[in-house]
Structures are given as C-alpha cells and as structure tokens.
Amino acid sequence: MKPAPFRYERPDTVEEAVSLLTEHGDEAKVLAGGQSLVPALNMRIARPAVIVDVNRLPLGRVDGGRVGALVRQADPRLLDHPLLAEAIPFVGHFVTRNRGTVAGSLAHADASAELPLCLALLGGSIVTSRGREVAAEELFVTHWTTALEPTELVVETVWPEPEAGVGYAFCELAQRHGDFALCAAAAAVGNGETRVAVGAVVDRPTVLEVDPDAPGESAAAQVDPYGNLHASAEYLRSLVRVLVDRAVARARERAS
C-alpha cells in the first residue's frame, strides 16, 4: 500500500493550479483533503503522473451560502443550513471530515455521498476556475464522473439559503457509523412543494418527482438499484420507500 511514483506540485494560486492541470491534462489529479484520493493512491487504484496539491490556494472563505473550495467538511459554518447540519454527521468520521473538503466530495461524485445529494436536493451549484457556474443537475453525470473538464478546478460551491416555510430532512441507512450509505434520502417540504432526492441506489444523486401522498412508493418505482455484496436489489428498493417516507414525514413536520 505505497503509491506508484508521481510528481508532486503545490501551487499557491488558482492560476498556477490551472496551468499545471492544463500542462498535464489527464495525467494530473487534484489533491484537496485526500480522504478518497490518498487511499486510492496507496492501493494503486489511482496512478496519476502528477499530483496537484491545492491546499495552499486561498479558497477557504464562507460567505452565506457561498463556500470556498477548501472549506473542510467539519467547518461549523456549514451547520447554519438545517439540511447540512443533519447530513454532515453521516459524512465519514469526524477525523476524515477534518481533512475532507466540501468541494472535494462534490468533485469526487461518489453516488452514495451525502454532500452531492444535499446539493442536488437544494438545487445548488459550483463555480469553476473558468468562471462558469454549473448546476448540480448538470454537474453529476454518473459514478465518479462530473461535467468538469480535466483542466477545470472547483473554486466555490453555492448552497441556496433555507427557505422560510420549508422543512428539510436527511435520512440514510449505513451498516456502520460513517460507512457509505446503502441508501440515502433527502427531502424539502413546504410552500406547496415536496422535493425529494435519493443517493446510493442510483448512479448519481437524483431528484425525483414524487406523489406527495405516497412519496416513498412513488420514489421506489423510479429507481432500479443493483444488488451488492451487502444487500439485494429488492432490499435497496424497499429502503428507498422507507427512507423517502421518513424524510418527507420529518421535513413536513419541520415545515409546520
């Protein structure tokens, strides 16, 4: 479990980082918190020729819902949003949250990750080094794949403020504390709207149109999960029903 040889670069500015990414293209990989990349390097699953360590970039600001790309998942300023306050304790363990970044989780785009699911539910976006803003629904393409170009860096993530009259809820079932979810569901209910998103049972965090009177049932009908080592497809589909119902019920209660 030692990484294959790589060149290590540690730029001080976004411009330098982008120039390194431009120079090395597919051969380069961005290192932020390293909580996914470093294990992948050690297991030699990832073998980039160049590591671009962005930890010195000045991207640690939080301004309302605008969160700099190097803000760690443990940052207490994130807890102002009720959905994030509920979801973040499910993100790995506190020691991994101390290093792991919000933007890194979004860019890594694990389909079972909590933060991408929250961004999708809230209709948030990211801002990149090219100055463009990419909405969550375009950002997440499929497993570990985003709409970002190899030479493009996330500089900021944008989280819509909580709406008055809307309740938020996040539920997930994992087999151990801090594990990847078998299924996760988030809901925002209020002002005549019921918004639901699910993760882990889909190839990317997915917002579903649900029947407000039977949210779980209607959500379960729209997903087609694959069984895995731990759980059958039937079980995962059943979890969608249970967790979506729980999330909607909890969000509805909080809205009133």
């Binding site: 297991m43 087999q175 151990r176 504390h177 801090g178 594990d179 990847f180 080592l229 731990h230």
Partner: peptide, 16 residues
C-alpha cells in the same frame, strides 16, 4: 476475496 478492505469487511467501531 470480496471483503478485502475495511469498506466491505464490516469491523464495528465504538459507536456501533
């Protein structure tokens, strides 16, 4: 071996 890392080999930790 399908349970070759702590991701799939579910060793419980304190909170569990």
């Amino acid at each position: 071996l399908l349970t070759g890392t702590f991701m799939d080999y579910l060793c419980p930790t304190g909170p569990d």
